[in-house]
Amino acid sequence: MGNATSISHSITDTPGGADWETQRRRVTVTLLVVPIAMMALLFLVPLGYLVWLSLGGPSGPNVNSYRQLAAPVYLNLAYYTLQLAFIVTVACAVIAYPLAYLLANIESAVSRLMIVGLVISLWLSVLARTYSWIIILQRNGVVNDLLQQAGITSKPLPLVYNETGVYIGMIHILLPYMGMTLYPTLRAIDGSLVRSALSLGASPWTTFRRVYFPLSLSGLVSGSILVFTMAIGFFVTPAILGGGRVNTIVMAIQNQVQVLVDLPLAAATSVVLLLVSLLILVVYERIAGVERIFGKGRQ
């Protein structure tokens, strides 16, 4: 298509014509050079180096580090991390579903305030909110004060620096992501379908089960994938609220680097986690399209 002089003639070309197309393609390539170079240099190279290091680095290709990973301690860690992420995801889905239903279907002050709250949440510091939970949940914190004043317990409950604290903190931080993915899906459900089912004699429960819920499934799936991925890689919240009693695979990686100083092992663990997250990314793209993350982009 086109020829070398197309640029100088382009002004008189019809938009959409062959020369215009060629020129537009050339501009597209020029635009992409900088961001692609940046991603290659600052994303693919570090990760590629990690893969090389995990395979033995300078001492030739071998899978020694991966063999180390097959030890029971790492298998248990992997199992524990997946279990933690799974429970957090299910909890977020169960908590967020009625909430998203409320936001999508009932006009009230609480809905408006909640939408603002959810959007602001995505903007707030994870470190700060994790720290808040220490203040709220600690031995002489607000929750324990209230529980004792209400006579529910006589001495403070251990709510933080353990698994309970990790679950509370992770659900708090990941819930808005689930909510903001579910809400647009539920809002897009055509109310006339629900009305038809009801007028044809289906009970509200049957209508929900056979009509409403299947229509909301796509949002539930993409929200769950998003939350699950974030939960697997979560470091700040479990590290702080777990108080050393909760160990996940990312915390093991930090330990391998900073305490064990076994970089090939840390690299191998990272590569496994990298492959898992890339797999999830591809699945997510297949199911929902990555641009739907945060509920933005095409619906």
Binding site: F43, V45, P46, L47, Y49, L50, L53, T229, I232, G233, F235, V250, I253, Q254, V257, L263, A266, A267, S270, L273, L274, S277, L278, I280, L281, Y284, I293
Partner: peptide, 15 residues
């Protein structure tokens, strides 16, 4: 955005 920060962090660290 999807790859865990820890993995990216270690990648940059070794490089």
């Amino acid at each position: 955005m999807i790859v865990p920060l820890m993995v990216i962090g270690v990648g940059f660290y070794v490089l």
